[in-house]
Design a protein around this nucleic acid. Structure first.
Lengths: 337, 337
DNA sequence: TTGAAAGCGTTACCAA
DNA sequence: TTGGTAACGCTTTCAA
């Protein structure tokens, strides 16, 4: 017993102990070529005795593939992104690929830096979840590594992307509110530089216009996709003493914050004010009242991303269409009159 | 321009182009030894021109370190674990270490399998977040790779662990409830095989006993750490028409579910029933009413884990004491009489 | 200060 | 079917 400390058995040691050449052991391991029954038996035994595990590092260096895909998320804490990552993880499960995850925190420079890091670590592909980088920048990266980008409409030899129809879903939510008899509908916006936030705002405005309803600019207040932003926004809105019967929040977190602001003032939901959110986070089913919101099929998005990646990497996968957004009608909207 | 496709420049190519030996380039890159000014200049230029980036794979193989630490989490979707991971990520930020994250889904076999995978990928260390493996099993892994384990009191040459005082915090929460005048307090338990869940239950029982209050077994109902479990549990509790004025939920998710069950029946919080949770998830500050709950300093836990890991890996780090749990008094508990 | 060369643990080609 | 051997891209002796 000389291998005391974390010593790792190598292929050579196995070969020596088994009295065969390293090449043969390798062939046995990978099924690359036939090895005779007697040798196979010895090798099998020796591997068991020595508890040999191939060094993936060496394999990667040799084969030019790390069996790792990099994921650029924005925040490890985001329920939004993590659901997607679970999907990616599950899509990759059987393939032997591992996920190297890094966060860009919605900061273009940091995102680019992380992608560089990922490439430096020789990942086989990079999945980019939204973020603030230029499309051009991402296209540039795609010359160095296969990329699948969620939230971007990018396509090319080594890159694929897809978006969800945020605009359409926002319209759908607004239609619902209007159909329930609401006329004065407030909107808490998201970060102005965020594509999805912009699409949702456009959906709000266009639907109002389509119904020839006044789009009172005082009814649109800025938010930042966070609970505290929603709280602030609603306080700000209330301070202007504008009348409104419904509120469309650009995401669920914002809706949570707004809901608390209402609670603080004793304004009931949905009796006094109706609320619609966007995302359908897990907890939205359990708020009081359960939140009516646009469901983003994030897990499926992850599956989709994973599948696209695997396909780019040359592993045939069943196509998985980008899933649609849909309105989850729960209990935060009241039917008027 | 011959390097069209993702071709990667190597150290040798740089050396050739610069008219020096690979060794010199390597020395320049690592500052391992002095290189003369003229050579240094050429090398610098060539590296820029060729956009050379060292192959980390080759470096790792040579140096025996991947600068990667594996993290065994239980679920990528868990707000609980992800907060911790953010802490780990931040602790590692400057060190050049990357995180290879895998999920065990609270299943001992799967956890062990993931750790094997991590070791196979030659991570420099593994951080284990709770989970269901035996302590012995984990000690076993520690002979192969340095480990820091959260939620375990393990110590050894290549392993360090720490727990948070769930028992004490549960007692603290119960003391608060009693102090507020509550006498009949219900408890929604967590998974019976979960250490933390057990500690919290023990805290509930012992505090009752310490105050000579009846521990009515009908008042403790099983849950599973999820919202739906909390909802079910509370319905079950209500079905027995037991009297109680307060509810201690073994975690926040459970509290959310219970709160919805109450809402459904028009039972007000905290006027009719008071609720205390455990974890202090981000959204607990924004529930209606904001939830009084035990705060787990998960981000700091992550920092702590990261620091311990770095120290084990031979990088001196300032010690970071395991942070204490504390009760966040908000608005879900009513003062009786 | 520099270069040649050995080696990290694999895989795969070429002979045998 | 097997073994020898040359890579993969890097770091680090050892000499010069």
């Amino acid at each position: 017993m000389k291998n005391d400390q974390r010593s790792t058995t190598t292929l050579h040691e196995v070969a020596n102990a088994a009295g065969v050449s390293p090449a043969t052991v390798s062939r046995f391991l990978n099924g690359t070529a036939k090895v005779s029954d007697d040798k196979r038996k010895v090798i099998e035994r020796v591997i068991g005795e020595l508890n040999y595990k191939p060094n993936q590092l060496a394999q990667s260096l040799k084969m030019g593939s790390t069996r790792t895909i990099g994921v650029l998320t924005q925040s490890l804490e985001s329920g939004y992104f993590n659901k997607t990552m679970t999907g990616i993880e599950d899509a990759m499960k059987e393939s032997g690929y591992a996920l190297l995850i890094m966060s860009g925190h919605w900061h273009a420079d940091e995102e680019a830096e992380r992608v560089e890091l990922l490439i430096g670590r020789r990942v086989d592909g990079v999945a980019i979840l939204t973020g603030n980088m230029d499309d051009a920048q991402i296209m540039g990266f795609s010359r160095r590594v296969p990329i699948v980008a969620f939230g971007r409409d990018l396509h090319g030899e080594r890159i694929n992307g897809f978006c969800l129809d945020n605009y359409g879903a926002a319209c759908q939510a607004m239609e619902y509110l209007i159909e329930q008899g609401h006329r004065r509908i407030a909107f808490i916006a998201g970060p102005a530089d965020h594509v999805d936030a912009r699409a949702r705002l456009a959906g709000y405005r266009d639907t109002l216009a389509r119904h020839k309803l006044e789009a009172d600019p005082a009814l649109v207040v800025p938010g930042d996709f966070s609970e505290s932003g929603g709280l602030l926004a609603l306080n700000q809105l209330l301070a202007t003493s504008q009348r409104f019967t419904a509120l469309f929040a650009c995401n669920d977190l914002t809706a949570y914050g707004a809901r608390l602001a209402l609670y603080r003032r004793g304004i009931r939901v949905p009796e006094d004010i109706s609320i619609v959110g966007f995302d359908d986070l897990d907890s939205s089913m359990y708020t009081t009242p359960p939140l009516t919101t646009v469901r983003q099929p994030l897990y499926d998005v992850g599956l989709c991303i994973g599948g696209m990646m695997l396909r780019m990497l040359g592993r045939p996968q069943p196509e998985f269409p980008a899933p649609p957004l849909s309105l989850m009608v729960r209990e935060s909207v009241r039917r008027m009159g």
